[in-house]
């Protein structure tokens, strides 16, 4: 039971990362790798602050703001330097590795002795879960409201048809920068919560997390049948929880943890390809019949 609860709690933490990536990947149509660096950045900033006895809530919020700066860097690289989306993100991500090391001053910081928002007592797992659910809910509600505003809608429209938005008098570059900043901030908050929850921050903790986020998005989309924007954003949370449950299950079934990243990548590849694989199979079935 406890494993289940802590798995869902972790799922909710990674769900926030998934939401951050959703903003760039699906809303802005921007293959953004910054997320991995932003997650680590959030974790590093939060860990340094908390281990210096700063209030954990303040630390999370500060981590979010610093994380949004990382998103802005990617935005500037793309819109001002005209570097392709994927490369802009990779450049920021690589740079953040060194920056995160500098912030922490060492490869990892333990938070075992520090006050975090999570309780480490045996019977308190459920409280942690409820706390994370509330945080997720707040972020979701804020984002759904934001994307209904004029500014938010113009970001969605920019991602959907940039040329149209330029013809409608919108500075699409500033909209992209803003969206990337929001995404960076949210990914950093996820990183901050992750370091508080696991009790340490590690410079490598971002590596491979983009795949987790993408898997959450795709699983979420498969789980929901509604096509509305809000439903899709909420579905990321359930996708992330489902993904965590799968990982916990295979680990409990005896998979070597070293193989985890291979498994993660394979799952993501299959999920991303599934709609096309399904189509190909359907077509060959029809061909075989006729």
């Amino acid at each position: 039971m406890n494993i289940l609860i802590s798995t869902i709690t972790q799922g909710l933490i990674y769900a926030i990362l998934g939401i951050g990536v959703y903003i760039t990947f699906r809303i802005l149509n921007f293959a953004d790798m910054t997320a991995e660096g932003s997650l680590g950045l959030g974790g590093s900033v939060c860990a340094v602050l908390v281990s210096n006895a700063v209030n954990p809530v303040t630390s999370i919020i500060l981590a979010g703001f610093i994380g949004s700066a990382s998103g802005l860097v990617t935005g500037v690289l793309h819109t001002k330097f005209k570097i392709q989306p994927i490369l802009s993100g990779i450049l920021t991500m690589i740079a953040l590795y060194s920056i995160n090391l500098k912030i922490m001053g060492k490869p990892n910081i333990s938070l075992i002795e520090s006050e975090t928002i999570f309780s480490s007592k045996e019977g308190d797992q459920l409280i942690n879960l409820i706390l994370m659910a509330i945080i997720c809910l707040i972020i979701l509600v804020l984002l759904i409201l934001f994307f209904k505003t004029r500014l938010g809608l113009s970001i969605r429209a920019t991602g959907d048809n940039e040329e149209m938005m330029r013809a409608l008098g919108t500075n699409t570059n500033s909209k992209k920068q803003l969206a990337l900043s929001i995404s960076g901030g949210i990914c950093a908050i996820s990183g901050a919560l992750l370091s508080l929850n696991q009790g340490y921050s590690d410079v490598n903790m971002g590596t491979g997390t983009i795949v987790i986020a993408l898997s959450s998005i795709v699983i979420g989309e498969a789980l929901t049948c509604k096509n509305s924007f809000q439903a899709k954003l909420v579905s990321v949370v359930f996708g992330s929880i489902a993904y965590r449950l799968i990982i916990t299950l295979v680990l409990n079934l005896g998979m070597n943890p070293q193989d985890l990243k291979l498994f993660t990548a394979a799952v993501a590849a299959i999920l991303l390809g599934l709609p096309n694989i399904r189509k190909t199979i359907k077509r060959s079935v029809i061909n075989a019949k006729s």
């Binding site: 209904k148 505003t149 004029r150 938010g152 809608l153």
Partner: peptide, 9 residues
């Protein structure tokens, strides 16, 4: 022609 503010669209 209106600013893209935080008013509902």
């Amino acid at each position: 022609n209106s600013p893209k503010s935080l008013k509902f669209a």
